[in-house]
Simulated scan of single mutants.
Amino acid sequence: MAASLCRIGISVEVADMFADIDTQRIAHALPLSNYPWSAYSWLMESQAEAWCYTGGLENYPRLITRLSKLRPLLGNSAQVLQLVRDPIYLSRLAEKHGFQYPETTRSPRQPLGKDWLIKPKRSAGGLQIERYTDSHRSHQSRYFQREIPGTVMSLAVLSTSTDFKILGASRLRVGLEYGAACEFVFAGATSVPIADLPGFDELQKMVEVIHTDTNLVGLWGMDFVLADRPVLLEINPRWTATMPLYERRMERSLMASHVDACRDQCLSGDLTEWSGTSGLRIVYASCSFEFSVEHLSYLSAEWNLSRDSILGKPTLADIPNVGTRIEKGHPICSIYADGANENEVEKLLEERVAHVHMVFNQSNTN
């Protein structure tokens, strides 16, 4: 997200949990020692004219309200967040308008079957989702939802208060098969042509209903399962991990369009579909280790980690700082690839992930 802004010449300040190396090479980046609460003091001292959020900060609407009083928010308000992140609200909206949503309850009256999941209210990226067992009990911090078999996908949307545009679609890569430590954890995505999506008319209707009812603005995502009919899963009311895939194909700054949508209420730029495919894969650690100078040297020798490369189409991203302790199953970095079609991109991603693991195995041995 920071790179997307820097590409159009905007000076950017970043505060997050990590302040990764590549972020520091393009922007003033600060790791928050007490995430997310220290974001308030950071923004108070910042020279930024406006601010926006991504990732897990959406789980803290009260904090977002406080931050919005310090600087103008380019994004969705706490009130909008509380709507779109509420599974019961989405369930009722789906029922009212005739689209599909998984059976959901906060407090089951009887034991549920094996096809049910227990999900946290505050989470991101599939973290802390578990399969239901009889030992699970109702709790205010979680809810129960029936699992829907099918292909997990996402849409990227840009909207103003009166209009919207679907920018692209991606097939999500989730779980152990792709190296993640848990069954439902996000591990990557590959973009697919919108024209190839079965049920696209129904997906567009879902987006229209959600947009009209919630007044979502700027960039946001909609996760869904592609089954006999599309089934809505959740709304991500901000820049998502799949956004760089569309930006790589459009070769333009999506955050420029986000700013225009939030500030000027206009859908700017050429937002038409493109040819080709892009993919992302998160590389998860197969063992615990400390990221060292040697690790960084190995990666730098294999891939261009210059500022120009980071602001172009980087192959490697989210690079840890030297001295970072990375536990087994935790993410090391992200890998990108571009190609003519999905199969070509998936093959490139698999090769590059294997190469990253080889680099770390070699450096750890040395």
Rank of each mutant, 00 (worst) to 15 (best):
C6D: 09
Q24W: 00
H28T: 09
L30P: 00
M44E: 13
M44G: 04
A48W: 10
T54I: 08
L57F: 03
R71E: 01
L73I: 00
G75Q: 01
S77P: 04
A94F: 01
K96M: 10
Q100K: 14
Y101D: 00
E103K: 15
R106D: 11
P111C: 04
A124D: 03
G126D: 07
E130D: 11
H136G: 04
Q145W: 13
M153C: 15
L155Q: 02
L167N: 09
A169I: 02
R173W: 14
G175A: 05
A181G: 01
A195I: 13
D213P: 04
N215I: 06
D223C: 05
L226H: 05
L226F: 02
I235A: 04
N236C: 05
Y246G: 11
E247W: 00
H258K: 10
D264A: 11
L271W: 04
Y284W: 08
F289S: 07
F291I: 06
E294Y: 13
N304K: 07
L316P: 04
A317I: 04
P320R: 06
V322F: 03
G323D: 04
I332V: 15
A337C: 11
E342L: 08
K347F: 11
L348Q: 15
A354W: 00
A354E: 03
F360G: 00
F360I: 14
